[in-house]
């Protein structure tokens, strides 16, 4: 019995662990540059301001450009054979819509990447 107890004590430190990780894609979108956008800007002026987009969608004679940045935070906790894992992915997005004359007609931005959290899965998050 004493041997089993000793074995259990020796294995205990090996049977638990925790980790935090963070993955990011692209650079965060800069709000101070987004506020400089306005209807009528040419695509060349937008390129100079924001750089190249991640995606271009052709919309007939018009087009839409996407800029984005993702942040994923993972939290893990293992106790013996039970692991709790939380993955939280949030994103900055910017879509620009150009008319047939290559002028900015409409745009929309969502900046939420910084709200990604390290929390355990039973903790309320983004509720």
């Amino acid at each position: 019995m004493r041997t089993f107890a000793l074995a259990a004590l020796l294995l205990l430190p090996l049977a638990q662990g925790c980790f935090l990780t963070r993955d990011t894609t692209n650079q965060p979108l800069q709000e101070e540059r987004i506020v400089q956008l306005g209807p009528g800007l040419s695509s060349a002026e937008v390129l100079e301001l924001l750089g190249g987009p991640m995606e271009v969608v052709q919309l007939g004679r018009r087009s839409a450009w996407r800029y984005d940045h993702q942040r994923t935070k993972r939290t893990g906790l293992t106790l013996f054979v039970v692991t709790a894992l939380n993955t939280d992915t949030q994103e900055d997005r910017l879509w620009l819509f150009f008319n047939e004359y290559d002028r900015l007609a409409a745009f929309g931005s969502t900046l939420q990447a910084s709200s990604s959290e390290w929390v355990l899965p039973w903790v309320d998050s983004h509720e």
Binding site: A8, L11, L14, V81, L85, T87
Partner: peptide
């Protein structure tokens, strides 16, 4: 004995129970 077996299995990751939550973007 049961405790030691459980710990051994856990330490070698032979069995697992995982509670996962994935949150992807905000609605």
């Amino acid at each position: 004995m049961i405790l030691a077996c459980g710990l051994a299995l856990g330490a070698s990751s032979c069995v697992k129970a995982q509670y996962e939550r994935h949150i992807v973007l905000e609605p």
